[in-house]
Amino acid sequence: MRFLFRRLTFYIVAAFAAITLNFFIPRMMVGDPVQLMFAQFQGRLDPRAMESLKETFGFVQGPLLQQYITYLTNLFQGNFGLSVSSFPVPVIELIGPSLAWTVRLIGFSTILAFIIGTILGVFAAWRRGGGIDNIFLPIASVVGAFPFFWIAMVVLYLFGLVWKWFPIGHAYDVSMQVDWGNPTFLSSVVQHSLMPLCTIIITAIGGWMLGMRNNMIGVLSQDYVTMAQAKGLSDRRVMLVYAARNAILPSLTGFAMSLGFVVGGALVVELVFAYPGMGYTLLRAVQGRDYPLMQAVFLVITLAVLAANFAADIMYVLLDPRAR
């Protein structure tokens, strides 16, 4: 439990760092950020929107510290400000639906990629030089060299446009009403999600597989694996309980860095497929200079990544008695 407590403290520090970065980034820019924003939206922006923009970022009169406190107070009240591009809709209302789409798409595909990659890694190491090792490993290395979004473009081009297997763009058929009880709607959601889902899985699988394979090879040379075999245990038990359970631990530790990378790539994949998730929203916000939306999306993504890491830590504690 001390381990989990320590990790939780760290995540709180990290979340606070992200919030603080969010506050300082605009202030580190050359020139006055308020002037910058004015220049960006000259003549196009409602004066009320301008006021709300200032307030959201704490650009009120007074010293920096006071601005920071104002900013924090707003944040903890759940006040992320009003969107500029769809003024005066509160940012939080725009984020809600896109967060749900992202959690479903990226959450599901990342977990699936982790599981499939880990399993393939286990078998690749168990039968070293065998089929999985010789077929999947080179493929994974080649695919891993391409940018995520480029794979997405190729998938979209081939399966969406040339062969027309799947619908392109958006998360469901926009002519339909959102109704989760309706099977036609559900099947539309599934059809729309298949291409981005497969893209993320294809691109993310290689890293997990390679990592797990190398950990496994290390663990397989350990005496406790040899002894388990000598004891007469079944191959299945040796492979899973003795080798894989130990080999997955470094994978879970490395989850943090990999997850940030995978999520970053997946967000851009959303853009290619015009999938209305957080990545799409973030990039739309950047293109439309919708700063409140941009900042809020960044914070929410960060918090989601931290939460996923905490989940990985809990898994770690469940698997390794030494962390308990």
Binding site: M257, G260, L267, T302
Partner: peptide, 9 residues
């Protein structure tokens, strides 16, 4: 902290 913050966003 920099390691865990999602880099691309």
């Amino acid at each position: 902290v920099f390691l865990i913050l999602p880099g691309l966003p």
